[in-house]
Design a protein around this nucleic acid. Structure first.
Lengths: 220, 220
DNA sequence: TGTACATCAGTGAACGCGCGTTCACTGATGTAC
DNA sequence: TGTACATCAGTGAACGCGCGTTCACTGATGTAC
């Protein structure tokens, strides 16, 4: 799994794509053990290269970590998109907007549960310059996906215009918090069925919090 | 600040209350630098005792960490209770239930913002046996405070009985997620006023998610 | 087309760090007689 | 009340660990002439 190629194609001294190989290896470490497991020397080892070689491609550990974090954030966004594509679009615009929001939320939670190591890494504070990164998360693909879904919801009128501002933050907070509590908090040992229920209940609460009422005429 | 006493009262060899002194010192480390800053040797140093002495009172670093974590969780609950006591009770039961819920949420968020190191420590996974601890968080004072507030809300009828189950998890998830995003996420660099707004908007969303509608006759 | 040479991308040995933890110990305390 | 002695609560030196990082280096590559 960690071995990228047994023998590199071009002469085995120059790797050819070491930056990517290291990022991939380090991301695998994060997948298996979370952000703390991302160790520069270990990544180099698993690629079959000296630790020093990494310094040709990364400024240091923090820089490698940053690359891994971006990978993890990308994987999260991929999962959300996949979940979005997994169910067919609904012809009714309102139901479609709701479906999108639910799919996005389920993708987020699903990723956290299936890839806890990567999920934690995506939100860790161990990388170089994580403060600017945190601020720029508002421009991340995952966040934009959410913004678009909320726009769609607003267009149908389900989300009143005056509640549109900051709506992504409420939706994100709730979903993110649920993921955290499922991973590290009191929900971590919940049996499967209960877990499903809690997730459904919470995502329903998010939707209610957005649109204001539980029952909407013609919905469901 | 870290120096507990220049000379201990009882002969300077036997400390007398070393376990507490170490916990206090270690908690101060957590306050200043988060869970990563909790270093057994440093705590011993700041108490003025050899690192080895700690092993008379704690099984090891993980055990000390655990004590610190309990302190941090206690401080969070204290803050929530303080916020609860800061505004007067409302004679109207429905408004009172809402006030309690808001105070609890504000206390939670306020603690996260004022004591980020302790807040992170309260939810870190670095202590000994954190898995059982995570599960038992459902019995923590903070969680019970929330449960009581939701019971009160349910009694007034504002929270329909069929939505009472798992309601604390939705409320907690949302508030917790907001705190996380404020500390480490895209909201970390938000200017003060915007921050207030986002917080208000999100807590309002939580309430709406719980009770289903925005406007309730006679409320406000 | 061949060759000189700058540059690029690796190597391996070594360092310092600060931690958690163990060890054999010693000074202080308090209890049995 | 005094004393012997078990126990308790500290000490200081030392270890091993594995990391990130630096250093002086060398083998491979590709370009100018």
């Amino acid at each position: 799994m960690n071995i990228v190629r047994p023998v590199t194609p071009r002469g085995r001294y120059h790797h050819g794509d070491l930056a990517n190989a290291l990022t991939t290896a380090a991301t695998q470490l994060a997948r298996d053990g979370g952000p703390e497991a991302v160790v520069l020397r270990e990544a180099a080892r698993s690629v079959g290269v000296s630790a020093t070689a990494a310094y040709r491609h990364f400024a240091g550990h923090g820089d490698l970590m940053h690359a891994v974090k971006e990978c993890a954030q990308g994987a999260l966004a991929d999962r959300m998109r996949a979940e979005l594509a997994a169910s067919p679009a609904d012809p009714d615009p309102r139901r479609e907007a709701v479906r999108r929001l639910e799919a996005i939320g389920m993708g987020y939670i699903g990723f956290a549960l299936d890839e806890p190591g990567l999920f934690r890494t995506a939100f860790c504070r161990a990388d170089k310059g994580f403060e600017e990164a945190a601020a720029s998360m508002a421009n991340s693909p995952a966040f934009q996906l959410l913004g678009e879904a909320l726009d769609a919801l607003a267009e149908t009128g389900l989300l009143p215009a005056e509640r549109r501002p900051h709506a992504e933050l409420f939706a994100w907070s709730s979903t993110h918090g649920l993921a955290m509590l499922l991973l590290d908090g009191p929900l971590s040992e919940l049996p499967g069925p209960d877990r499903e229920l809690v997730i459904a209940r919470t995502l329903q609460g998010v939707l209610d919090g957005l649109i204001g009422l539980t029952d909407h005429s013609g919905l469901d």
